[in-house]
Design a protein around this nucleic acid. Structure first.
Length: 285
DNA sequence: AGTTAAACCTGGTTGC
DNA sequence: TGCAACCAGGTTTAAC
């Protein structure tokens, strides 16, 4: 479900609320994708810093009870904290006090309110680390590609990364090796905007098309963040609102409809195990 | 080494 | 109406 834009919208809404608060109680429901990694009661009294994002992960830096100093905004995984992932159907909300729902599998009671992770499919996770290198959090963060809005990711570097791969470009985008953040919706959209056929082998993309693809990824992710993300089904921002970007989709879920650019019928093909929507008329291999 | 399938889980929609 | 089959925003792990 949530791709980078939805995760970023969630982060932006939660960070100001949670920063400076303290943990009162952590309650777990049904098991999620990965175990928490510590006894939930061990987190009582820990203080929270400003939530950050890396790829589709959220990082909540924490500090032990005691000191009154502000919690350092550590690089994700570098100090103590909780790493969150929304999986396919997860949403985080600061909930008003109310009954725990059937799909509320993590409830972090804090001095700033109750943070709930609602995740029907339970592909999401919350993982604790004390900051010791080599743990579960480190392993999850290791090997992630560059952030899409990192200035260090130049068109030249992006092209060089493409040139080293022979997989279909759609699969490479989903894998996050070239750039993180684009999931199935935004990978389809970015390839459409760039006019590139999703089955094109990465190495076939020259400097000009590489530059166009990187710009398209940035454009679609940026526009989706500005629109509050996409809500196909489950996604809600921390205020409970749905995203609006799905109304701006150009190809995703438009199988059989005319291409918004050239009128050719949009097709759907399963690639990298995911439904891939593209226009055979104006996306070239 | 690099690419592809299977697995995790629930619920909504589609088709017979 | 009932039920089976298929589909869904992600990522790890095991298998060719």
């Amino acid at each position: 479900m949530p791709e980078l834009p939805e995760v970023e919208v969630t982060r932006a809404a939660l960070a100001p609320t949670l920063a400076g608060a303290s943990v009162l109680l952590l309650r777990l429901g049904k098991p999620l994708r990965w175990p928490l990694g510590c006894p939930p009661q061990a987190l009582a009294g820990w203080r929270l810093g400003a939530m950050q994002r890396r790829a589709k992960y959220l990082w909540l830096p924490m500090a032990p009870p005691g000191s009154a100093d502000a919690v350092d905004a550590t690089v994700p995984g570098a100090g103590p904290g909780l790493l969150w992932h929304l999986g396919m159907s997860g949403a985080l909300q600061i909930a008003p006090d109310g009954p725990t729902g059937a799909h509320d599998h993590v409830e972090l009671h804090t001095t700033a309110g109750l943070l709930r992770l609602t995740d029907p499919r339970r592909f999401g996770a919350v993982v604790w680390t004390d900051g010791t290198p080599g743990g579960a959090v480190d392993r999850l963060l290791a090997g992630l590609g560059p952030e899409p809005f990192d200035a260090a990711l130049t068109p030249q570097r992006f092209h060089a990364a493409l040139a080293a791969k022979r997989t279909p470009v759609k699969a490479a985008l989903l894998a996050g090796d070239l750039v993180v953040g684009a999931g199935n919706i935004y990978a389809c959209e970015a390839l459409f905007i760039a006019g590139i056929h999703p089955a094109t082998p990465c190495r076939r993309l020259g400097p000009a098309r590489a530059q166009r693809l990187l710009a398209a990824v940035r454009q679609v992710l940026g526009a989706a963040i500005a629109a509050g993300g996409s809500t196909l089904r489950d996604y809600r921002d921390p205020h409970g609102s749905a995203g609006a970007y799905q109304a701006q989709r150009l190809v995703y879920d438009r199988e059989g409809l005319p291409c918004t650019r050239c009128g050719t019928t949009v097709r759907r093909r399963v690639m990298a195990q995911r439904s891939t929507y593209f226009c055979p008329g104006c996306q070239h291999g």
